[in-house]
Design a protein around this nucleic acid. Structure first.
Length: 398
DNA sequence: TCTGGGGTCCTAGGACCC
DNA sequence: TCTGGGGTCCTAGGACCC
């Protein structure tokens, strides 16, 4: 999709089509999406909101409506699957489609691309761009060239001609850091990489990256489209490797109590998602970001995989306390659970006198109540507002 | 008012095992 | 008798993607 969040947020606003619009980018936030008029001022997604406002003070700022974005995304993915079941969602607004099996039914790749764009436009009233090629990485590059609202087909005989003159930073998987390193090594264009023997590349930048860069430079990456690879969309496919949550404080926090309360909120949310997905994890990791943006992580692997909020939280607290922070202001805290496995594959040792069975039951009761009455209906007592007021749509607490 | 939040993958060192 | 080689797991950090 082109400028997805901005397109969706303004699709019922004809008055905003020609003026700069920014979604997100509030206090301490970054721009989620900028429409094309805003991009003309240099605003880009991922940019700090403060910088975006300096570049384009007159832009209209819209809040992110994640529920709406999710619904539109689901509809778009569904439209993709009417073309082919071989859809690999990359994110809410982007997917790889393997259309080899659809050509007999729907025509050549360009016809399929235009048909897809017409459907999305008719059904969702937003535009998208399509890149077509024989490999994922070249198709990805082609789609970038096609933006906005276009189609670019790169045939096999055109790959070298399209790829080699481009900056190495245009390759999928080459970000700013790698681009700088490559430029420093004298690799400016994709052609420079292509003309260098793999072994030499690997020696200079590492085994995996060297191999990858060489493949990318020739457009020969063999990666197949893997349906349902991104699990956000819940269509089976590969299981998640990890689940996590993190939060930037509105203002840096140094009180242990405040930080732990946030850790509990985050852990409870992650554990709830894990239970909903039927997975448990053994490795608990916390992330801490200091006021100067320095970021560290600590992790601990427990004996048995768990999806129990209390157990995961206890591990997180131990990691936090082991840091020995003395009222150090923190900008962000995060929790992540790694090494996820299906819950059925976990067999509990269940030591005598352990309470985890009780905690697990409590979690499930909370999940059911939250499903019926809303997520804010039930929460740990330590997360209750001490003033007694209820936030949001909470109806009661336990 | 500098810099979100959700992820994946790779590297490198050390422990540990055979 | 002065030091092997292969493999796995754990931990921390970092690059990258959207």
């Amino acid at each position: 999709m082109d400028a997805f969040y901005a397109s969706v947020a303004t699709r019922d606003r004809p008055d905003l089509q020609q003026v700069p619009v920014i979604v997100g980018g509030g206090y301490r936030g970054v721009v989620l999406a900028a429409n094309y008029p805003a991009r003309a001022f240099g605003v880009r997604s991922g940019m700090p909101g403060t910088r975006a406002r300096r570049l384009c003070p007159q832009a209209v700022r819209l809040p992110a409506d994640h529920e709406l974005f999710g619904a539109v995304s689901a509809a778009v993915m569904e439209a993709f699957r009417r073309v082919t079941p071989r859809v690999e969602a990359v994110s809410l607004d982007e997917a790889f489609l393997d259309v080899r099996g659809a050509t007999r039914r729907l025509g050549g790749p360009r016809e399929i691309a235009e048909e897809l764009r017409a459907r999305i436009h008719d059904e969702q009233r937003i535009t998208c761009s399509v890149g077509v090629a024989a490999s994922i990485s070249v198709a990805k590059l082609a789609s970038r060239l096609a933006k906005p609202d276009g189609v670019v087909v790169v045939g096999p005989e055109e790959i070298v001609e399209v790829l080699h003159p481009r900056d190495v930073g245009d390759l999928y998987g080459v970000g700013e850091k790698t681009r700088t390193v490559l430029h420093g090594l004298g690799f400016l264009t994709v052609g420079d990489l292509a003309r260098t023997p793999v072994q030499e590349l690997q020696h200079k930048v590492g085994r995996a990256l060297g191999r990858q860069l060489h493949d990318l430079a020739w457009g020969t990456d063999r990666r197949e489209v893997t349906p349902g690879r991104v699990s956000v969309f819940g269509h089976g496919g590969d299981p998640d490797r990890s689940m996590g949550a993190q939060r930037t404080f509105g203002r840096d926090q140094h009180e242990r109590e405040v930080v732990l309360r946030e850790l509990l909120t985050l852990t409870a949310g992650v554990a709830r998602r894990m239970r909903a997905k039927g997975v448990a994890g053994r490795t608990v990791a916390i992330t801490v970001r200091f006021a100067d943006f320095r970021t560290i992580s600590r992790s601990h692997t427990i004996a048995e995989a768990s999806d129990v909020t209390q157990e995961l939280y206890q591990a997180a607290v131990a990691l936090y306390d082991a840091l020995g922070l003395q009222r150090t202001p923190l900008r962000l805290v995060g929790v992540r659970v790694e090494g996820l496995v299906p819950r059925e594959s976990v067999h509990r040792q269940g030591l005598l006198g352990e309470r985890e069975h009780g905690w697990s039951d409590a979690d499930r009761a909370v999940d059911r109540a939250a499903q019926r009455f809303g997520r804010s209906a039930v929460r740990p007592a330590s997360l209750l507002d001490p003033s007694g007021r209820q936030s949001g749509s909470a109806r009661g607490s336990a």
